[in-house]
Simulated scan of single mutants.
Amino acid sequence: MNGHKDYEFLNIEQRKVMLTYFSSFVRKLPISYITFVYRRSRFEDPARLMERMGRDISSAMIEHLGFFQSFDDVKVYYDNGQDIVKQALDRSVGKVLSKGVVRRRKTSMTDYRLEQVADYLCTIELALVKCEAKENGKTYNKFFGGIGSFKRNWLKQARSKRI
C-alpha cells in the first residue's frame, strides 16, 4: 500500500487497483483465518506477551481442533519478523498438534501466495484497530475510504473468511 520497493513507481490509483484485484483473489480462496491483536505497552515484559500469545493460539487451536485435525499436514509459515511471535507459534502448535503433522518453513513474502494472503488479512484487521483508535493515517483513508466504507466493503469481505 505504501509504495515501497517494487511498488515505488506505481501511483496510488495503480496500487489501489492491485489491492482490489488481490482482494477479489482472496474472496475466492477456500481459506479460514483468525487474528490476535496485542499492544506491547500493555505487558510488563516480552515474556508475558509471549505467554499470552501462546495461550491465545493454543486456545483457538483447541477450540477448532476438528478443523486442524482434518488435514494430513499443517504447515506453519512464518517470516521470522518477530522472534516473540515465532516462539509463541512454535510452542503452541507443538503443544496442540502431533509433532508428526507439523512442518515448519522459513519463508519470504514473495515465495508463497498464502503468506501474502495472510499479510493482506492482517492488514485489514490492523486497519480496523487503527481506525477505532483514530490512528489511521492518510494511506488507509486513500485506500479504504472512511470507516463506514471500510467496514462495509473491505472488512466485511475479509471477515467472511474468519474461523
Rank of each mutant, 00 (worst) to 15 (best):
R103C: 07
H64K: 10
F71N: 01
I163W: 12
S108H: 10
A60D: 08
R162E: 15
M1R: 09
A118K: 05
G54S: 13
Q14A: 08
V93F: 09
L49C: 03
D56A: 08
G145F: 10
F36A: 04
V37F: 15
M61A: 04
L19G: 02
V85A: 04
L97G: 00
R48T: 11
D111Q: 13
R39G: 04
D83Y: 13
E115F: 11
V17F: 14
V129T: 09
W154C: 01
R162S: 15
R159Q: 14
R15C: 02
F71L: 00
R55P: 00
Y78P: 00
A127C: 15
K161S: 03
M61D: 02
R91S: 09
D111S: 13
L114D: 07
R104M: 13
Q116F: 10
E8N: 07
D73P: 00
G3H: 04
E13S: 06
C131T: 02
F68H: 01
I62W: 06
A60W: 08
M1A: 09
C131K: 08
P30L: 10
K156F: 13
C122Y: 00
S70Y: 03
Q14L: 11
M50H: 01
G146N: 15
R40D: 04
V101T: 10
N11Q: 08
I84M: 05
R42M: 11
H4I: 13
E8V: 07
Y112G: 00
Y140E: 13
Y38P: 00
K75I: 15
R40V: 14
Y38L: 05
V37W: 09
Y7Q: 08
S149K: 15
Q82I: 09
F22H: 02
A133K: 12
K28W: 07
M50L: 08
K134Q: 12
G100T: 07
S32F: 12
L121A: 05
D73W: 10
R15L: 09
S108Q: 12
G137Q: 09
F67H: 05
L126A: 14
T139E: 14
A47D: 14
P46W: 01
L19F: 13
M109F: 08
Q87W: 07
A118R: 05
Y38S: 02
R91G: 07
D45H: 10
